[in-house]
């Protein structure tokens, strides 16, 4: 169905706000890169900002928020489950930093 000019204008206004929010979050990531903190702290802060940024983009730019609730839950839970399942190897990564079993 074709939208009215008023609906179109309102939609563009909302998207501009979302775009500016995402730009600001991207700017925040660049600011974090120059903070005098450890790499682990920097990683945690950048990941948090990236997750918020991605969430806003998925919900409003990709219109997931306006899809059926069942579909939204399917996408969110399925994706989060698989992403979490990928994290099983980190303990081995930390073990390697301590040379466990591999170097003298």
């Amino acid at each position: 169905m074709a939208m009215t000019a008023e609906q179109k204008h309102e939609g563009i206004g909302k998207y501009l706000v979302v775009y500016l929010c995402i730009l600001a979050l991207a700017g925040l990531q660049f600011a974090i890169a120059y903070q005098n903190i450890t790499a682990a702290q920097m990683f945690r802060r950048m990941l948090s900002v990236a997750l918020v940024e991605a969430g806003v983009a998925v919900m409003f730019f990709m219109h997931l928020w306006s899809e059926k609730r069942g579909f939204l839950l399917f996408v969110v839970f399925f994706t989060i489950f698989v992403l979490l399942a990928m994290q099983f190897g980190w303990t081995d990564s930390f073990r390697l930093t301590q040379c466990a079993g591999y170097c003298s």
């Binding site: 991207a26 990531q29 660049f30 974090i32 890169a33 790499a39 920097m42 990683f43 950048m46 990941l47 900002v49 990236a50």
Partner: peptide, 8 residues
């Protein structure tokens, strides 16, 4: 990609 590959 930006934070993990470039900024870090």
């Amino acid at each position: 990609v930006v934070p993990f590959v470039y900024l870090l």
